[in-house]
Design a protein around this nucleic acid. Sequence first.
DNA 1: GCTATTTCTTCTACAAAGTAAGTTTATGGC
DNA 2: GCCATAAACTTACTTTGTAGAAGAAATAGC
Lengths: 109, 109
Amino acid sequence: MGRNTLGTLEQAVMMVILALGDGAYGVAIRDELSRRTRREHTLGAVYTTLDRLTAKELLESYLGEPTPTRGGRAKRFFKLTGEGRQALDHAVNTRHELEYGLDLAGKGA
Amino acid sequence: MGRNTLGTLEQAVMMVILALGDGAYGVAIRDELSRRTRREHTLGAVYTTLDRLTAKELLESYLGEPTPTRGGRAKRFFKLTGEGRQALDHAVNTRHELEYGLDLAGKGA
DNA sequence: GCTATTTCTTCTACAAAGTAAGTTTATGGC
DNA sequence: GCCATAAACTTACTTTGTAGAAGAAATAGC
């Protein structure tokens, strides 16, 4: 995709990160994504998206505390950068204008 | 993009076709798209998308009357198939669930 | 202080979508 | 005929999306 549009998965991932607040790390993101999407996404898909968004500086990441549960590797948490927030808002607005006046399923209000 | 998700442009184009009703042909679609998106899209981008959606049987096309205007090649009009309508509705619903509970710009209602 | 187990991340190769920059076909008027 | 206009088509390329693993880190139990 040319310049600066966000793909559907990219947008979805960013929204899920917002929804998760703190606690947004790879596996959790995948799970919440599956929940909201009613669809399975592999971790591979999620992480590559995460990486690409980070490379574009729309996300930033930091490593979490030593794991509290059983075994496990250190979680990497993600959040939107200011730029990321802007990009998402822009995508949402664009969508809004596209949907304007149409009667679409799920547009109950 | 893997199996059956619609990309952002694909969704956008389908929405614009709905918005245009009859009168949805390449150039008109591009123009309406630019209007609603506040962004220029080349015809190349639009036509390749149109073709792909047609190939996936989400759109169907038919040729219009011999051109009424100045010069020009016969217009090709597009509309959603039943399957296309379904796919779009599904995309809209998914989006809905993703946005649920978030406070996003442009989500005024 | 090993080894199995759990939890999470990283890699790699490929398929699908998006874009740009042209080319082609068809009028109509001069 | 030649130029301008209006539309569609083509091609080569970049960016996103996906799958299916393999790789690391931490802990528990023994």
